[in-house]
Structures are given as C-alpha cells and as structure tokens.
C-alpha cells in the first residue's frame, strides 16, 4: 500500500527536483555564459570617470529608487520591495530551506523564527497580488505584460502560498500540501531560465553595464 501524498512528495523531492535542478542550473548557465561571451567592443574613448568602479557601485545603488519615483508608482515600487524582501526572507531564512541549501551546497547560516517567516510570507503574497493587480489595471504595464509575465508572477507566488498552507495546515492533507509546495518550486525552477525570472541573475550584469557606460563619461548612474 502506498501513501499517494507521500509518493507525490517524494516525486517532487526526488526525480522531479533532479530534473528541475538540471534545467535550472544548466539553463541559467547557458543564458549567463551566452551573454558574457558575447562581450562588447573595446571603448576607444578616453574615460573621464571610473567605469569599472561605477559599474560595481551601480549594482548596489540602483536598488534604491530615485526621489519621487515611489509617489508616481507606489504599488510597483513598494510592492516590488515587499515582494522581493518577503520572498527572500521566507526563502533564505526559513531553516528547512537552509537545510536544503546546505545539503546542495554545504553553505549554512542561522535562520529565524516562524513569526518572521510567516509575516514575511503573508506580506510577500499581498505584495505579489498587488503587483498582479497593477499589471492588470495600469495601462502601461498592461500593454507591456505578456501572458508569460502573469504566469511567472503567479508561479512565484505559489511556493509562498503552498508553503504557508502546508506549514499551518490550513486545508488539505499537510503532506499533500507539502508536496504541492515542493512541486511549485520545481516548476518555478524549470520555467526560470526561459522567462524573465532570469533577471534575478542578469540584473547585476545590466546594472554593471549601465554604471560603466555612464561612469566612463563621468556621469551619474
């Protein structure tokens, strides 16, 4: 006799995770290597500023919006912040997740308690829903958004929602919900290299290039 819920969990943790890991790691590397090797032409103009330093600096400084930006796009910016921060607190500071990362990479760090994790999760989900709303309602974003963008945002919210439901046993069999949680992460990993989720890696490159282009001219970035 089998426990179908447990079998699903084991499938999600086992073979499907392996497939997801393969697609994720290989896919991300393909895309990053593809960009890096493409390279750019040597710039013959005499640098006025410090392109390399400013490029590196911009990777960090671009995290903060320019004055006035929040007022113009409160949902996108505040929602974006809360979603990202919440997502990463829930992802990186929840001890079972740390255990997973430790298992994969050998790296480990202290986690935080359930109140923080669940608070972050709830806020991230609310923020994610707000981002979905503004994508749907705001004409600019609506015009830019493809069905893949909606899909990616929803897929990013599913691990948060399923994880919360599973840990709190809100409904469904907890093992089944845990299986759904892992399954949702597997799916997220699989779609990752093919979608805009790639920004999680390439943003640093983009910011660097932006900073170095501006920095060469001694301009702000």
């Amino acid at each position: 006799m089998n426990n179908p819920n447990f079998d699903l969990l084991m499938f999600a943790r086992g073979p499907l995770f392996d497939i997801a890991l393969l697609v994720f790691v290989a896919g991300v590397l393909i895309r990053v290597v593809e960009i890096l090797i493409l390279g750019r032409k040597k710039d013959f103009s005499k640098a006025k500023g410090q392109p390399v330093q400013q490029g590196i600096k911009t990777i960090f400084t671009r995290t903060f919006p320019r004055p006035g930006a929040i007022k113009a796009n409160p949902i996108t910016i505040v929602g974006g912040y809360v979603f990202h921060i919440g997502f990463f607190i829930a992802f990186l500071l929840f001890v079972p997740h740390i255990a997973l990362i430790e298992e994969l990479t050998g790296l480990s760090w202290p986690g935080v308690g359930r109140v923080v994790i669940e608070g972050a999760t709830v806020l991230a989900v609310i923020a994610g829903l707000a981002l979905l709303y503004t994508r749907w309602k705001d004409p600019v974003r609506r015009k830019l958004t493809t069905w893949v963008d909606y899909l990616v945002l929803i897929l990013s919210l599913l691990p948060l929602i399923t994880g919360y439901v599973a840990v709190n046993k809100l409904f469904g069999d907890p093992t089944f919900m845990m299986a759904l949680h892992v399954l949702s992460v597997d799916i997220l990993m699989i779609v990752f290299p093919f979608t805009k989720l790639m920004h999680a890696f390439t943003f640093a490159m983009a910011r660097y290039y932006n900073g170095s282009i501006q920095g060469r001219k001694g301009a702000e970035s």
Binding site: R31, R141, T202, F203, M205
Partner: peptide, 8 residues
C-alpha cells in the same frame, strides 16, 4: 534578459 516589464 533583465527587463521585467515593470513599466517604471
């Protein structure tokens, strides 16, 4: 690769 269509 990085654009997330945020519209900002």
């Amino acid at each position: 690769s990085s654009c997330v269509s945020c519209g900002l």
